[in-house]
Design a protein around this nucleic acid. Structure first.
Length: 643
RNA sequence: GCUGAUGUGGCUUAGCCGGUAAAGCACCACCUUGGUAAGGUGGAGACCACGGGUUCGAGUCCCGUCAUCAGCUCCA
């Protein structure tokens, strides 16, 4: 008898059970079949003998989808435990997530973190009881009846939304029944390593107008060792959190007297910023960008013209009234740049015109969303608006993609993803412009990405209100998905500002605008750089590149001389001539994560040499200052990432 | 903004059941001039986020405000 498995077809004796097959393909491990499909139909009983040729998709603990099934099933156990301890609690939904699961529950009286161990104990009892998880198909009417009997109004509401003729599945474990699409593990005893991690609020159905439920988060793993690994990684991520590194390295600070979400850049942080802005502006200049400087404030009519006031007001600081005029802090720079374009006559020969700026922007972000430099209320963008003809869109967008990739290469960024951000057609009033234009723009960006063989994914509902975007997404140490760079195609603002250029036939034409930012937020980019490098900033951007350390007072003046010479050559140095011991000074420099230390004692002074200790611990002793400088200069010029 | 938690010298933290604050690092002084991750001694520094309340008495209990943290909604 032939049975077709996922990747192979195998011969089995008639009467073999699914469970036997599962055991054979999961290499004899004790915990095997979870669930599966036979000829595309959901399996009800894994112990049923199979007597005919068939195709079988079994999920075992070797299958890629096992982790998700396990997470989802653990969420059910969580729900069962909660209902046992708090019978009045009402359940909403409990899906698996990227690395765990959660369950949204409406508690009669709010629970606290102290309740988590109690719930965990109850879950352990359920796991120990090893209830079979039994699947059953019921009609919609029956499902509603069951959930009404169980006093689960949210579940009833959920089922009412389903198709009338749809068969609904229930899963039962012990005295607990839940309506669920599945699949699930075979029995509760298969859960070996789990932990409830945190508790938070979450809006019902993800809508901030709705009631807030209590969300309990947890993680579950196939093995205890995997869970230990997970928590170890979390700890590591905390260490490279830019908020910690920024404080330890003296990069930036916040102060409540200055205001929340308003970063203060300290001397070392400012040096870092300046290095980045010099770098990107030089690159842009070489590509024909024209830098401008415009005020951080604008008349409210500017934003009424652009449409930002209508669409973006809730994220803007409220207007200030001065002599019957309203002014706002700008949340973005597009309108200012539109006005610059409009102020002059343009020939098609001038296009593309790339107006760029390192600009300060202010956004009134909800207080609960502020996160270090990741999400702030005052930030700087390395912004540019490219005014071009429709024919130039392709080459201009390609140019920006190339620039982004170039910059990422220089910084050694590897873990990023391109995202094509599209509008949500079910929510059209969020966007300006007609369907035709949107479809055209989205298609154009997609084609450019495809033509340039860029790996990307599409995301509906992530577009700007004036057009689709190509975003570059990264994941922060905290696990947040954040945008680093963006390219946006815009037909709307040129229309709003009535921008024009004259083409070769002397016709007035409307340009297209490409908004782009490589460092969509300089602040956020620095946060990401800190986290990616764990604070070990590559020499070319390190605020202090060389720490010159004298061994004792006897070599202090020699150290000062060396420091001076390096400084003259443009190396960012700091001199440590304090009367601490050498070990102490090295430790301090090491904690500051300075790439190079020059250790200068009497030996070096007498032979006119320098001894170097790198951040990695590597020592290079007794070389000439020229050699040392050459080595560091090469490091800087090549923008080496490794330390 | 919402839900929950937290808030002690510059930093990291201790402070049991309410009896007017403890340590390490950092800082200052003195001693030490020492070769690759912390030399020694001494000193200064906190009305315990802020404002109310309960109490004979509050860092500790209660309420409010502000800020921070986690998540939700939102987002560069």
């Amino acid at each position: 008898m032939k049975i077709k498995l996922r990747d192979e077809e195998r011969e089995f004796e008639s009467g073999v059970t699914t469970l036997d097959i599962a055991k054979s393909i999961s290499e004899g491990l004790a915990r095997v079949a979870v669930c599966g499909k036979i000829n595309g139909e959901e399996l009800i009983d894994l112990n049923l003998p199979i007597t005919e040729d068939c195709s079988l998709e079994i999920i075992t603990n070797k299958s890629p989808e096992y982790a998700e099934v396990l997470r989802h099933s653990t969420a059910h156990v969580l729900a069962q435990a909660v209902k046992t301890i708090f019978p009045t609690a009402k359940l909403w939904v409990g899906p698996a997530t990227k690395d765990g699961f959660y369950y949204d529950i409406d508690f009669k009286t709010p629970i606290s973190n102290d309740d988590l161990p109690v719930i965990e104990d109850e879950m352990n009892k359920i796991i120990k009881a090893n209830f079979d998880i039994v699947r059953k198909e019921v009609t919609k009417a029956d499902a509603i009846k069951i959930m009404k009997e169980n006093n689960e109004p949210y579940k009833v509401e959920l089922i009412e939304g389903f198709d009338d003729h749809e068969m609904i599945t229930t899963y039962t474990q012990g005295d607990y029944i839940e309506v669920c699409r599945g699949p699930h593990i075979k029995s509760t005893g298969m859960i070996k390593a789990f932990k409830l991690t945190k508790i938070s609020g979450a809006y019902l159905k993800g809508d901030s107008k709705n009631k807030m439920l209590t969300r309990i988060y947890g993680v579950v793993f196939d093995k205890k060792s995997e869970m230990d690994e997970y928590f170890k990684n979390l700890e590591e991520a905390m260490k490279r959190d830019h908020r910690k590194l920024g404080k330890d390295l003296g990069i930036f600070m916040f102060d409540e007297l200055i205001g929340r979400g308003l970063p203060v850049w300290l001397p070392k942080g400012f040096l870092l910023r300046r290095t980045l802005t010099d770098y990107i502006m030089n690159k842009e200049l070489a590509l024909g960008y024209k830098h401008v400087m415009t005020p951080s404030l604008g008349n409210i009519n500017l934003y009424k013209t652009s449409g930002h006031w209508a669409h973006y007001q809730s994220s803007m600081f409220p207007a200030m009234e001065v002599e019957d005029e309203g002014y706002v802090l700008r949340p973005m720079n597009c309108p200012h740049h539109m006005v610059i374009f409009k102020a002059f006559q343009h020939s098609y020969r001038d296009l593309p015109l790339r107006i760029a700026e390192i600009a300060n922007d202010f956004r009134y972000e909800a207080s609960g969303t502020l996160v270090g430099l990741e999400r702030v209320r005052a930030f700087s963008q390395n912004d540019c608006h490219i005014f071009c003809t429709p024919e130039q869109i392709k080459s201009e967008v390609e140019g920006v993609i190339k620039l982004i990739l170039d910059v990422y290469k220089d910084f050694g960024f590897k873990n990023y993803k391109f995202r094509l951000s599209l509008r949500d057609v079910n929510n059209k009033d969020k966007y300006f412009g007609n369907d035709e234009l949107w479809e055209k723009s989205e298609k154009a960006l997609r084609e450019i990405l495809n033509a340039n063989k860029v790996n990307y994914y599409e995301a509906v509902g992530e577009a700007a209100f004036y057009g689709p975007k190509i975003d570059v997404q990264v994941v922060s140490a905290l696990g947040h998905d954040i945008t680093l760079s963006t390219i946006q195609l815009d037909y709307q603002l040129p229309e709003k500002f009535e921008l024009e250029y004259v083409d070769e036939n002397n016709n007035k034409c409307r340009p297209v605008v490409i908004h782009r930012a490589v460092f969509g937020s300089l602040d956020r980019s620095i946060a990401f750089i800190l986290e990616e490098t764990k604070g070990n900033l590559p020499t070319w951007i390190a605020p202090v590149q060389v720490k010159v350390i004298s061994v004792s007072e006897k070599s202090a003046s020699y150290a000062e001389g060396v420091a001076k010479q390096l400084e003259i050559k443009g190396i960012r140095i700091e001199l440590d001539n304090s009367d601490e011991r050498i070990g102490y000074k090295i430790r301090s420099a090491q904690l500051e994560k300075v790439p190079y230390m020059f250790i200068l004692g009497e030996n070096e002074a007498n032979s006119n040499k320098v001894s170097i200790r790198k951040r990695s611990g590597e020592e290079i002793n007794n070389i000439s200052l020229e050699e040392a400088y050459k080595m560091i200069k090469e490091d800087i010029d090549e923008k080496r990432i490794s330390n």
